[in-house]
Amino acid sequence: MAQHQVNYASTAGLPIALTSVDKLVNWGRSNSLWPLTYGLACCAIEMMASGASRYDFDRMGTIFRASPRQADVMILAGTLSKKHSEFARRLYDQMTEPKWVISMGSCANTGGMFNTYATVQGVDRIIPVDIYLPGCAPRPETLQYAMMMLQKKIRRESADMKKNTKQDLTTQTGKKRARLI
């Protein structure tokens, strides 16, 4: 039938979009970030609130997964105690590449107000962190903003994960480097 034949040259052009592999892959990666439900402490409640009705994380393509094997992002929401630290590292190791880490809340960033014997003074001592999210506890909007910042970050990255500079666990002077990732 003639009416079904579309003249691409005169209407909207050819149904072809030109892009680079990087952009295409990152478009997919950044728009379906599935975080691991890793609620550690108070921030986990705000993480749940951001997944619940008012803040509705799902509209950003962010769906919480209970298994590290299915997750792309680890949101470390809350205080990481020393007893728990090895499990955090193990869960991080179980996640498949590409993976990103959001450290949510002051406790996860630096130990926060819990400057005590039992608290890991910043999860970046054991896990490379992409986004540090300050606040005690950060509001759900803040977590959404962090997620959007992470999306921006991913869109700037190369699709080939080996090319990306990942944070490595070096000393602050940075003389000795060791790839622990």
Partner: peptide
């Protein structure tokens, strides 16, 4: 790995 990771910042 103690040297690499460094002491805690308290």
């Amino acid at each position: 790995y103690r040297d690499i990771i460094g002491p805690e910042n308290r």
